[in-house]
């Protein structure tokens, strides 16, 4: 599993830096997911260094970190590079939204005045077919239905996240959303359940998704 990111337009990032009067930058690039998505890693770092230097920014330092999204790892990085962090007015993060917030959280104790900016848009947690082909197949709903839907997620593969599809928007197995180019998730589920001889599961009237526990700063805390 990878958190899939894409690059923000360079101008969008440059405008943000300008708006915030950033001058001295410390770059942190994700060496795992964003490296795979070619939005971070060593290559991304080199690319952004060049862009920013050409724009006249002072690059204090730039490093690749394996787990930007791990608070412990980031705390270590900040400790090790304390002088550089202190000198920089802003941190530029080449990572997903988790990485950025991890840095914000870690820095907020010692350096609450430092800005943290991001160069990427976070798309979804993705399944990799090959590099350059990533697919959203799970939205982490917290109550996995795959045991009842033949291993195909209705929340993700149905454009309306319906619990009782297919809807009237399905034509020849395709979905109305996106010009009938994508498979209707509920037809995928139907075909799969048929294959495994479990159409009884397809016949089941399903309850709506229970939203009472979802959506607000969800956490998993077991120690």
């Amino acid at each position: 599993m990878v958190i899939i990111t894409t690059k923000k337009p360079v101008d969008e990032v440059l405008n943000v830096l300008k708006d915030n009067n950033a001058r001295k930058l410390f770059l942190v690039s994700c060496g795992v997911c964003s490296a795979l998505c070619q939005t971070g890693g060593e290559e991304g770092l080199v690319e952004w260094k060049e862009i920013l230097e050409n724009e006249g920014y002072d690059i204090v330092n730039g490093i690749v970190v394996d787990d930007v999204c791990d608070n412990r790892e980031m705390a270590k990085v900040v400790r090790k590079n304390d002088a550089d962090v202190q000198e920089a007015d802003s941190i530029i993060t080449l990572s997903c939204g988790l990485g950025v917030q991890s840095i914000v959280q870690v820095l907020s104790k010692k350096y609450p005045e430092k800005n943290v900016f991001v160069t990427n848009n976070t798309e979804f947690m993705g399944m990799t077919e090959r590099i350059g082909r990533f697919y959203m197949r799970c939205q982490g709903c917290g109550d996995c239905l795959l045991n009842e839907t033949g291993g195909i997620c209705p929340i993700t593969t149905c454009a309306k996240s319906l619990m009782n599809g297919p809807c009237g928007g399905m034509v020849n197995e395709k979905c109305e959303v996106g010009n009938y180019e994508k498979d209707c998730g509920w037809v995928l589920i139907y075909n799969r359940l048929k294959e495994i001889g479990r159409l009884d599961l397809f016949s089941k009237l399903r309850d709506p998704v229970d939203w009472s526990e979802s959506g607000h700063q969800r956490e998993v805390v077991w120690r």
């Binding site: 454009a159 319906l162 109305e176 959303v177």
Partner: peptide, 25 residues
């Protein structure tokens, strides 16, 4: 009771699609 066509098809495509219920529920 109808599901309704997805907002993406219409003239306010940026609307949030709700679909909390479906046509059966």
């Amino acid at each position: 009771s109808l599901t309704g066509d997805h907002p993406a098809l219409g003239d306010m495509p940026e609307s949030k699609p709700v679909f909390d219920l479906d046509s059966a529920t």
